Simulated scan of single mutants.
Amino acid sequence: MKLFQTYRVLAFIVGVLLAFCSFVALPLRYIPAEGTDLQQLGETLSVLWVAHGWAFMIYVVVAFLLARRARWSLAFTLLMLVSGLIPLLIFWVEHKVNQKVRAENPELVGSSAA
């Protein structure tokens, strides 16, 4: 799998995990009364924060490598790296990265991508 495709897959995984943890697991853990089934479900689902953390670390490395290969500015690179920490932002950033790669560095897309 090429670097660009790996970035896109990781961005999706990190984005979905962060959105789910932020908008489902976190509220279920802290809003229902202590000891209720919903609160316990929130506790159980909170393990996904660990999965997000690991996926995010890999995402940061891949995003950094992609940004360096494409020779993007420090500001855009930082936006890419931080977007995995703010719920839903990563989906917009991934869209911008996709447009930017296809416009400026089509060789990074690979022949199998449409």
Rank of each mutant, 00 (worst) to 15 (best):
L17A: 07
T36M: 02
I90D: 10
A55G: 05
L65C: 06
K2E: 15
Y59L: 03
L45S: 10
A33P: 00
G110L: 05
E107V: 03
V60S: 04
Q40M: 14
F20H: 00
L66V: 06
V62W: 07
F91V: 02
P87V: 06
F91M: 02
G42Q: 04
W49A: 03
G35M: 09
P106T: 12
G53N: 01
V24H: 05
E104N: 01
F12G: 13
L89A: 11
P87N: 11
S73K: 05
L85Q: 07
L10R: 03
E104Q: 10
P27A: 12
R68Y: 04
V60H: 01
S83T: 12
L88C: 07
V60I: 14
L38D: 11
A75D: 09
E104M: 04
K2N: 15
Q40K: 15
L45V: 02
Q40V: 12
I31M: 09
V101W: 00
V61K: 07
W92D: 00
F64E: 09
L81C: 03
E104R: 02
L18M: 13
L3V: 09
L81V: 14
L85V: 13
M57P: 01
A114D: 14
E94V: 04
E43C: 01
T36V: 00
P32D: 13
V101A: 05
E107K: 10
L88G: 05
E34A: 14
S22N: 09
A11C: 09
I90T: 13
S73T: 13
L66S: 04
A25L: 05
Q40I: 15
H52L: 12
A103P: 00
R71D: 12
A51T: 01
W49M: 07
A113T: 06
W54P: 00
S22G: 14
L65R: 13
L18G: 07
W54R: 00
A103D: 00
W49L: 07
L81R: 04
H52I: 03
F20E: 02
T6R: 11
L3D: 07
V61L: 08
N105D: 10
R8Y: 09
L74G: 02
L108W: 01
V14N: 10
E107Q: 14
F23I: 04
F91K: 05
Y7T: 05
Y59E: 00
V61Y: 14
V93G: 08
L108P: 04
A103S: 13
V97D: 06
E94L: 08
A67R: 09
L89F: 15
W72C: 01
Q40H: 13
L45Y: 08
A51D: 06
L78F: 11
L17Q: 01
Y30C: 00
L88W: 08
N98V: 01
A19E: 00
N98F: 09
V47N: 12
V93M: 11
L108F: 03
V9F: 15
K2P: 11
Y59C: 10
R69N: 13
G110F: 02
L66N: 04
K96A: 12
F12S: 09
L85H: 02
A11K: 10
Y59Q: 01
E94H: 12
M1R: 10
P106G: 12
R8A: 06
N98P: 07
L65Y: 02
L85S: 10
A103G: 03
